[in-house]
């Protein structure tokens, strides 16, 4: 039972919140020399916990929330973001990035790429990307799921250039959001807070120079299970704590495990924690509700994603060090 206890992921929530606040305050005030924090609010658990931690650290008067819906966003994201800003008592702005994305050709470029494999794709259709089942012995290949105006869905294989074109176009969403977060940060003399949890940070589940860009990332060391626990401790609204994680990037509803992770977060957390702490496979498999063989696939998938996304964490590479800076 000791092994199972080890995978409970329980932490001293008050102590952790205090530790994050102490470190974050030091980082903002002394390391970055900024006067507050900008947080993009998606209505999801990670950004909500980060905003609450920012308020605990600096006070509501030094935290600015930005909600950035676009044409494919779930309206719930904006509603919950507004609710959170109200509950925390922070100033906030709604920036509709739909027109900017349309002007950049985000939607048209994406749809043109999709039409190369589904010529009928257009108004009334919807899409999402789904990754292969990581519990099976295959490659982590992404598939395009399209839904026609009658509601019928089909899964299509994307040639590499179509896949890359679709992803490149949709990445404009995260990068446009970051552009606006930095606009408000520059305007206010604030730093930008990035909201990845450990699972996302470890597995490269972010867009380089998009949601991956930030000055501080105060929950990147916390497993998602711990983020949910912290949300309860910080008294976040029940609706936000109960909401299922979503990418909120595609016009068809999509869970994060469908897009990227092998398993729902609670089980994924246990697999990652077990791997990170050298816990015997049999105990991890039992805690995550997997067979030994399935866990071997998940661990292999974790290692493969780490390798595939390693460069997302890099700063620009120089030919030689510039010692003066």
């Amino acid at each position: 039972m000791d092994d199972l206890h080890d995978i409970s992921l329980a932490i001293d929530l008050e102590r952790e919140a205090a530790r994050i606040a102490d470190t974050l305050k030091e980082q903002v005030r002394h390391t970055l020399r900024k006067r507050g924090l900008v947080v993009g609010l998606s209505g999801g658990i990670d950004s909500s916990v980060c905003a609450a931690l920012a308020v605990r650290t600096l006070g509501a008067g030094r935290v600015f929330g930005v909600m950035m819906p676009e044409s494919d966003s779930d309206p719930e994201s904006l509603r919950l973001g507004r609710m959170l800003a109200g509950a925390l008592g922070i100033d906030s702005a709604v920036e509709d990035i739909g027109p900017a994305l349309a002007a950049l050709g985000c939607y048209e470029r994406r749809d043109a790429a999709i039409r190369r494999i589904e010529p009928e794709y257009g108004p009334g259709w919807a899409c999402k990307i789904a990754i292969s089942d990581a519990l099976s012995d295959g490659y982590a290949i992404s598939w395009l799921v399209v839904q026609d105006p009658d509601g019928e869905q089909r899964r299509l294989r994307m040639p590499a250039d179509v896949y890359q074109a679709v992803v490149a176009a949709t990445n404009m969403k995260q990068r446009t959001r970051k552009q606006l977060e930095y606009y408000h940060a520059d305007r206010l003399g604030y730093a930008v807070l990035g909201t990845p949890n450990r699972l996302e940070y470890d597995q490269g589940f972010f867009v380089r120079n998009g949601d991956g860009a930030a000055d501080v990332k105060p929950i990147a060391h916390l497993y998602k299970t711990q983020v949910y626990a912290l949300a309860g401790h910080l008294g976040l609204p029940a609706e936000i704590r109960a909401r299922a994680p979503t990418t909120d990037t595609w016009s068809l509803a999509q869970t994060q495990e469908e897009f990227y992770f092998a398993l729902p977060y609670a089980r994924m957390d246990r697999c990652l924690y077990g791997l990170n702490h050298g816990i015997p496979a049999a105990a991890v498999a039992r805690a995550a509700g997997l067979t030994d063989d399935q866990l071997a696939h998940v661990w292999k998938d974790i290692a493969a994603k780490r390798k595939a996304t390693r460069a997302l964490h890099f700063g620009p590479l120089l030919i030689e060090d510039v010692a003066e800076v």
């Binding site: 490659y139 982590a140 290949i141 992404s142 294989r157 040639p159 590499a160 896949y163 890359q164």
Partner: peptide, 11 residues
Amino acid sequence: VDSTGILELVA
């Protein structure tokens, strides 16, 4: 190769 490269190989 990575998984995208596998798709290129398949094509």
